[in-house]
Amino acid sequence: MSTSMISGHWLAVASGEHVRIGRSAGFMQVCHGKAGPLRRIGAGDGVVYYSPSNGFGVQDGLKSFTAIGRVRAGDPYRFDMGGGFVPFRRDVDWAAAREVPVGALAGQLDFTAERNWGYQLRFGLCPLGERDFRLIAEAMGAEVDLRLSA
């Protein structure tokens, strides 16, 4: 895959607190640091984070899109966070964007069209359609490159 190609869009799931750490440091992690899901993502792919809550395991009702950006070239890599936790990461160019409650886009997103739309999020990473990516970017006020390759 060419690193200049934008080939896909992804919806990742993590707590708002974890997303904000990754956003400030220019990386993403998914599925408790597993490499497999990160290998599905290509350089130039768009990624949006959905955060059901602010903290891991907390039920505070955040339910918001908390980050949006483009994945940089390079393979997933390990990062030692200390305490024996060495998750895999990918580098991301995060766009300046505001956090937006998913409810603000109610009825507009294809991925929320089904009654049980949240069920797909249990995997921590799922494909996201181009249309949904664009709608979320617009709602977040994000200046993210929306051009797609042919």
Rank of each mutant, 00 (worst) to 15 (best):
L121N: 01
P87Q: 04
I68F: 01
H18A: 12
H18K: 15
G22T: 04
V47R: 00
V13G: 01
D145F: 05
S51V: 08
G26C: 09
P52Y: 03
A12E: 05
C126I: 14
Y50L: 05
M81R: 13
R78I: 07
I136A: 00
V58H: 15
E143T: 08
V100C: 06
V86I: 13
A95D: 01
F79M: 14
R20H: 13
S149Q: 06
L105K: 04
K63D: 12
D132W: 00
P52E: 07
A12C: 13
A142S: 05
G107E: 05
G36S: 14
A150H: 13
I68R: 01
F65E: 03
F79L: 15
L146I: 07
H9T: 13
L125T: 06
S7R: 11
L105R: 05
P101W: 01
L146K: 09
A150W: 11
A104F: 02
Y77K: 06
A106L: 06
T112W: 05
A137Q: 07
A95C: 04
I6M: 14
E130Y: 12
C126H: 10
A67H: 03
H32N: 09
F133M: 11
A106K: 15
Y119K: 11
P37T: 04
V48F: 02
G141M: 08
E17C: 09
Y49H: 10
P127F: 01
E17N: 13
W117K: 02
Y50D: 02
G82Q: 11
D132F: 02
V100T: 08
A137C: 09
D80M: 09
G57M: 14
F56M: 14
E130G: 06
T66H: 07
F111N: 02
V58N: 10
L62Y: 09
Q59D: 11
A95N: 05
R23E: 07
L121I: 04
Y49Q: 07
G69S: 05
C31Y: 07
Q108A: 11
D132A: 01
C31V: 12
P87H: 07
P52G: 15
G103N: 10
D91F: 02
A43N: 04
D80E: 10
K34Q: 14
R90W: 02
H32E: 14
G103D: 13
G46E: 00
V144E: 03
E143K: 11
E143G: 10
V47G: 03
I136Q: 01
V47E: 02
L109A: 05
L128T: 03
A95G: 03
A139T: 00
I6C: 14
G42Y: 06
L38D: 00
F65Q: 00
I21Y: 12
G118N: 05
